[in-house]
Design a binder for these strands. Structure first.
Lengths: 330, 330
DNA sequence: TTATTAAAAACAAACGTTTACATATTTATT
DNA sequence: AATAAATATGTAAACGTTTGTTTTTAATAA
């Protein structure tokens, strides 16, 4: 039925060990023998069984990716970066969606461990203590992208959200803004906390009072962005909305315009994820150009180093960002 | 080091076979014994090695997903549907991006076969003869979503694109349109051919001449949509643009508006994929509401039937669609 | 009781590789 | 030419499960 390494060995009149060596590029094979074995492999259309390989070698060349939602552009952009580098290093990726549910997150992790993945990448997520305990307990390398989990002391790739938001906020304060709101969108808690902290810091540096109302929360989707005005219309003057989700940002744009609020004079808008959407908004929206694809790519590269026991000089990588000022702000 | 089924057997004073039976819910175990084994499993924090399992049972509870680009909303929406149902049936999904490159597509397929996946889903893609040969040669169940590949005689899930486009086109012709263009966007060739055929059929039914120029091609992204006017501006009058890519549709919208072309009086626009983007366009765009998530979900359900050798009454599923007429058309 | 059958558990052989270790062959050294 | 060293190949034991077959134990019938 299925052709195995035995069949190849028999046909090539060598031992299975020699076939295995040819397969794995072991140099201790006479070129002549190598050639003969390769011919038989081709003739029989033999393909090694990766599962058997995995059992014998304890390496599966598979990595797990734990992700809140693959149909969210933010995460799928990260995932694409991951996957491209994984492919480059001959790894395949198993993807598990969690919807930010800690229970699903933990189950996915344990599932991946069962499957003996060589490494795991977390994209965002909640990463509670229990999961972190599991991570430490297993000895599978883990890299976190897009959520800095400094306390957990795990390798990670990020931009400096704190600094980015502080920079943007300072710019906005300087041009006369007084009330800057941050609209959370249920992305990674860690990440959004950094944004909050950056905003608070900016308030402090500008000697302006920070109020709790400045932090609001919406879902990640368009309609949630539109609806934000139903809630905020009662609040004091709003000069700027900063939001995490591009999709919600489009909603805010439309919601405001439908109410006759014009950008950037009556209201300013800043978006913090950097999906394709930012290029499609009218008016163009000021945003932090996070290198999503690169974060994924660098994260996977970092993981390959751990998986291959290569030395790592900096486990917590901070990639540069650019703030792109567009006409949604003054 | 790692705790195995042997350790559990020893601690529980039974044979490994019994532990295995408990693990797999085999009824031939005395309740008392079952309880004892389960306790030891819990106490030792034992987790079965899925790789060893896969080798012994020849089932990996893993399915492969071959996809052009996970960072494209169209495909990631399909993928999410797939993944949710896969999870429901306790399968994990390995995702491989191909960028519609037939070579990558074939390599991914062979890789997945090596990994002994229990089934494979193709989302879009090119699926050339060589790959189809490989599929037939392996005896792994394959389901195709979003590309009807009727000639290949493979199970599939789709909507009736031909009918949908004919319906839309007839509607547009009836309200006075003469020149309807279809802008391909490098999605699945099969799928776009059905759209072309539907359009041609509508031209025929309305006794209007079909010209080759009515079919154009752009990339799938925003800028490509904007740029389409650089090319088409020279052409004869255009009444309607139908495009496959929502992202390109946004580009067309903006490109037209920048040229002072207004919707729907001077130009009408129809988009055929049904990503989140359709809800974010201004003006709202007429489109075919393809149930992307459901196509993925139904596709995975279909695949589970094949993987579990359950009877399948209809291997080629056609799901219903709705045409949502919005203000980008008359 | 004893014989017969059914249920529960154990035994041992797969599954298809990798990889120490042992052995055979070739090449280099004196 | 003999020996040592290096290279090439073979042998067999893992890897951690599942599963068909056999044995033991328990339940039922005569």
């Amino acid at each position: 039925m299925t052709v195995t390494i035995y069949d190849v060995a028999r046909e090539a009149k060598v031992s299975m060990a020699t076939v295995s060596r040819v397969l794995n590029g072991n140099p201790n094979v006479k070129p002549e023998t190598r050639k003969k074995v390769k011919e038989v492999i081709k003739r029989l259309n033999y393909r090694p069984n990766a599962v058997a390989r995995g059992l014998a070698s304890k390496k599966t060349t598979t990595v797990g990716v734990i992700i809140p939602d693959i149909s969210n552009l933010y995460y799928s952009s990260l995932a694409r970066g991951l996957d491209d580098i994984a492919e480059m290093y001959n790894y395949q990726t198993i993807i598990a969606n969690t919807d930010n549910d800690p229970v699903k997150e933990r189950n996915s992790f344990l599932n991946l461990i069962s499957k003996q993945v060589d490494g795991i990448v977390f994209l965002g997520g909640t990463l509670n203590d229990e999961t972190i305990e599991d991570i430490k307990g297993s000895n599978v390398p883990v890299v976190i992208c897009g959520t800095s989990e400094k306390d957990a002391n795990l390798p990670s790739v990020n931009i400096d959200y704190f600094k980015a938001i502080k920079e943007i906020s300072n710019h906005l304060f300087e041009s006369g803004a007084k009330n800057i709101f941050f609209i959370k969108a249920l992305y990674s808690q860690q990440l959004e906390r950094h944004i909050e902290d950056g905003l608070k810091e900016a308030y402090k540096e500008n000697n302006l009072p920070f109020k709790e109302e400045y932090i609001q929360e919406v879902a990640t989707h368009y309609q949630a962005g539109r609806d934000v005005f139903d809630r905020l219309i009662d609040e004091e003057n709003i000069d700027v909305l900063i939001t995490m989700s591009d999709e919600a940002a489009v909603g805010m744009l439309h919601g405001a315009m439908d109410r006759g609020i014009s950008f950037p004079n009556k209201l300013q808008l800043v978006s913090c994820s950097n999906t394709h959407l930012v290029h499609m908004m009218r008016p163009p929206v000021t945003s932090i150009a996070i290198p999503l694809y690169d974060i994924g790519a660098v994260g996977m590269r970092l993981l390959t180093k751990y998986m291959k026991d290569e030395p790592v000089d900096e486990p917590n990588v901070i990639l540069p960002y650019i703030i792109e000022y567009r006409s949604s702000t003054k």
